[in-house]
């Protein structure tokens, strides 16, 4: 294998981000990694679940397979192999941690998540198919368990499932970094906050959820 090829382990050829898009939005692996890192940190900091970055995850998984193949052909005593392998491990960690973080939220707030997801219009869904399936099955497994061990022995209509919903604290404060200037917003103390580019604020999640979804700001 040529040096060049090894150096470009994160294959530098551009990847097609959006296959259905006529304009063929292209993205380099470096940009892809940066985007995933942002998505990962956002997800870790936000109390509610965010839109699933399925395309990024799929592309990155493709890259991982590609990099693993490349690594196979380098002799194991080559220093570069160690370095690249380390890089690969780090990327895998980010993806796994991102997905785990989402599952964790689904498990903690299962019923809330499912109900919210049902309310969202088709183009605003936040969960992947597999995640929704996981949440629904998980919810069912817990309800079955409750029923089997306790509820079936009780007089009917004593248990009100709606009282058991656990909700995330969407008014919890998050650290926000502004990527694109987005005017001002009014915080909980009725003060105006100027969201100028690169400024950093501590704000309740609910107030900035919409901006976060648009990608104008990110969490840190």
């Amino acid at each position: 294998m040529s040096d060049e090829n090894i150096e470009n382990n994160l294959n530098e050829s551009e990847i097609n981000l959006d296959e259905e898009d006529e304009d063929d939005e292209l993205i380099t692996p470096q940009e892809l990694l940066e985007k995933i890192e942002i998505a990962w940190i956002n997800e870790k900091s936000a109390p509610d679940i965010l839109e699933y970055q399925g395309e990024l995850v799929d592309l990155m998984m493709g890259q991982i397979v590609h990099m693993e193949e490349n690594l196979q052909s380098i002799p194991s005593n080559d220093l570069r192999k160690t370095v690249h392998k380390m890089e690969l491990e780090r990327i895998k960690y980010i993806i796994a941690s991102y997905l785990r973080c989402r599952l964790q939220k689904l498990e903690d707030f299962t019923q809330y998540m499912i109900e919210e997801e049902k309310k969202r219009p088709l183009n605003k869904k936040r969960l992947s198919e597999a995640e929704l399936k996981f949440a629904e099955d998980y919810h069912e497994s817990i309800e079955t368990h409750f029923h089997q061990l306790a509820l079936q022995h009780l007089p009917p209509q004593q248990d009100d499932i709606s009282k058991r919903i656990i909700r995330p604290n969407v008014m919890g404060h998050v650290f926000v970094k502004v990527l694109k200037p987005c005017g001002t917003i009014v915080n909980t103390k009725d003060e105006e906050v100027d969201l100028s580019e690169n400024s950093i604020h501590l704000l309740p999640y609910q107030l900035i959820a919409e901006l976060l979804n648009k990608g104008d700001i990110c969490l840190i």
Partner: peptide
């Protein structure tokens, strides 16, 4: 099941 939903069964 969740992990198998990824192409190579990505292990989380």
């Amino acid at each position: 099941n969740y992990m198998m939903s990824f192409p190579n069964g990505f292990n989380i």
